[in-house]
Design a protein around this nucleic acid. Structure first.
Length: 246
DNA sequence: AAGTATTTCAACCGCAAACCA
DNA sequence: TTGGTTTGCGGTTGAAATACT
């Protein structure tokens, strides 16, 4: 598959793995681990390059792989995380135990990207994967943020390991909210300024995208407290002036 | 039923980061 | 500090499967 072999790979087998090769790789790794992928095929007796062995193990053979179709919840999580993390597939995969970056990338390109494009072109009413309708913005001064809380939280616990004191990591936020928070509510900037917030907000209105923005895996506490409050109270944001000075 | 078009997804590539002597 | 080696990542490919005519 793929392109012509480069000279380095001449003499090693390529293409789909056979069940026999799979078993050799599994047996070897179960016995000796995989501390050195480059040396592994030689020691295991496989006519493959180390890269190919690693890929086969990571994406298909390792025991904690979850196979089968993605649930609608999984797909919604991918969409939400994509909007947070962009095309950092390995980071997205880290949020979905048992799923690989390659698999998520494939699902995104074959299903989710197409679906989102269709949603954006269908006149503003989006059917999300949870089966509820999201009302998109129809004009700039009547912004609807429909925030039906599905989980209550009253305090923010901020973990600051390796982070500036005024920042939260995505992991921190995830521990406090469920998926509906990400898909419904949040606009956050990375400069901690209202100007930037409004700039983002207007950009989102113009692009008809989800009401959501996120930068560099960091969220600022002040911003988040405001949006948590919005989320928690089912309050509706009608005007840009409803967004406070941070 | 046969031929063609489209979709899916496992596997490849090149590059950059991490590692190590 | 440097330069070679290894690992991990995202983009891309194309055979196989599926849908369509």
């Amino acid at each position: 598959m793929g392109r012509a072999p480069c000279c380095e790979k001449m003499g090693v087998k390529r293409g789909p793995w056979t069940p026999e090769e799979d078993q050799i790789l599994i047996n070897y790794i179960n016995l000796y681990g995989h501390s050195n992928w480059r040396a592994l095929p030689k020691h295991a007796g496989l006519l493959r390059c180390g890269k190919s062995c690693r890929l086969r193990w990571i994406n298909y053979l390792r025991p904690d792989i979850k196979r089968g179709n993605f649930t609608p919840q999984d797909e919604q999580t991918i969409i939400n995380l994509y909007e947070v993390l962009g095309n950092r597939w390995s980071a997205i995969a880290a949020k979905l135990p048992g799923r690989t970056d390659n698999e998520i990338k494939n699902v995104w390109h074959t299903h989710l990207k197409k679906r989102l494009n269709e949603d954006h072109n269908n006149g503003g009413v989006t059917n999300n994967l949870n089966g509820t309708n999201e009302t998109a913005h129809e004009d700039k001064e009547s912004v609807i943020v429909d925030t039906t809380p599905t989980q209550q939280f009253t305090t923010l616990e901020i973990s600051n390991n390796n982070k500036a004191d005024d920042m939260m990591s995505y992991e921190d936020i995830s521990a406090l909210v469920d998926d509906s928070f990400w898909s419904d509510v949040v606009s956050v900037d990375n400069k901690n300024s209202k100007e930037k917030m409004i700039e983002d907000w207007e950009g989102m209105l113009n692009s008809n995208s989800k009401i959501y923005s996120y930068n560099n895996s960091k969220l600022y506490n002040d911003d988040m407290e405001f949006w948590f409050e919005v989320f928690n109270s089912s309050r509706r944001i009608e005007e840009l002036s409803d967004i406070p000075e941070f």
